[in-house]
Amino acid sequence: MEKSIKKWTTYGFLITLALAILFVDYTQTFDDSITSFTTYVPVYDYIVSIMRYSVLGAFGGMFVGVYVGWRLSKRTPGDKQ
């Protein structure tokens, strides 16, 4: 069960890291009545926000790993898949 938890935690972290890199916004747009300004988020703030989502994904993966490990340990050798 411990192996399953570690594996799913790693999967959750990596999958959420990839999704966070794709979908976390790194620009800020300020609209005025005449013009609009676009600024970039500082690198430190961008990395912290990506890591925040990745750690949350790792916790989600950990819970999936607990469930999968619990289901696998509950099976008996005579059960068919």
Rank of each mutant, 00 (worst) to 15 (best):
F23A: 10
T9C: 10
Y11W: 09
F30A: 06
V68C: 05
Q81F: 10
S36V: 06
I50H: 08
G12R: 00
F13S: 08
D45F: 13
Q28C: 07
M62V: 02
T29D: 04
L14S: 03
Y11I: 14
I34G: 05
I5L: 06
L14A: 06
S73L: 07
S4E: 09
V48Q: 12
L22I: 10
E2V: 08
T29I: 15
F23K: 08
T9W: 02
I34S: 12
D25W: 07
S49P: 05
F23N: 11
K6R: 05
W70K: 13
S73A: 09
Y40S: 15
T38G: 03
Y53D: 03
D31A: 08
I5R: 04
Y26K: 11
K3I: 00
K6H: 04
V55L: 13
V66Q: 00
K3N: 01
F59W: 15
G65N: 00
G57L: 03
V43S: 09
L19M: 13
Q28L: 14
L72G: 01
S54A: 14
T76H: 06
V66P: 00
Y67H: 07
K74W: 11
Q81H: 08
I34Y: 12
G57Q: 01
L56S: 10
I15S: 05
S33L: 14
A58T: 05
L22V: 06
S54P: 09
T27P: 01
S54I: 04
Y26I: 11
S4C: 12
E2R: 14
L14N: 06
G60D: 04
D25F: 09
V64D: 00
G57K: 00
S33T: 13
G69L: 00
Y11M: 11
M1G: 09
F30M: 09
T27C: 02
S36L: 07
V64W: 04
D25H: 10
F13V: 01
I5N: 02
W70Q: 10
T27M: 04
Y11H: 06
D79I: 08
D31C: 11
D79W: 05
V64S: 01
V48T: 12
L14H: 02
F59A: 14
K3Q: 03
W8T: 00
S36C: 05
T35P: 03
V55P: 09
F23W: 07
A18S: 13
P77N: 04
V55R: 03
I34C: 07
V43F: 11
F23H: 07
A20D: 05
G12Q: 00
K80E: 14
V68K: 13
K3V: 00
G61F: 03
I34P: 02
T10R: 06
Y46Q: 05
G12P: 03
P77M: 04
L56P: 08
Q28A: 14
F63M: 12
F59H: 12
K80R: 15
A20Q: 08
M62G: 02
S73R: 13
G65L: 00
W70V: 01
F63N: 04
D31K: 11
I15N: 02
W8P: 00
L19F: 15
T39F: 13
R75L: 11
I21A: 09
L19E: 01
I50E: 11
L14M: 10
D31L: 13
L72I: 05
G61M: 10
K7G: 02
G61Q: 03
A20K: 06
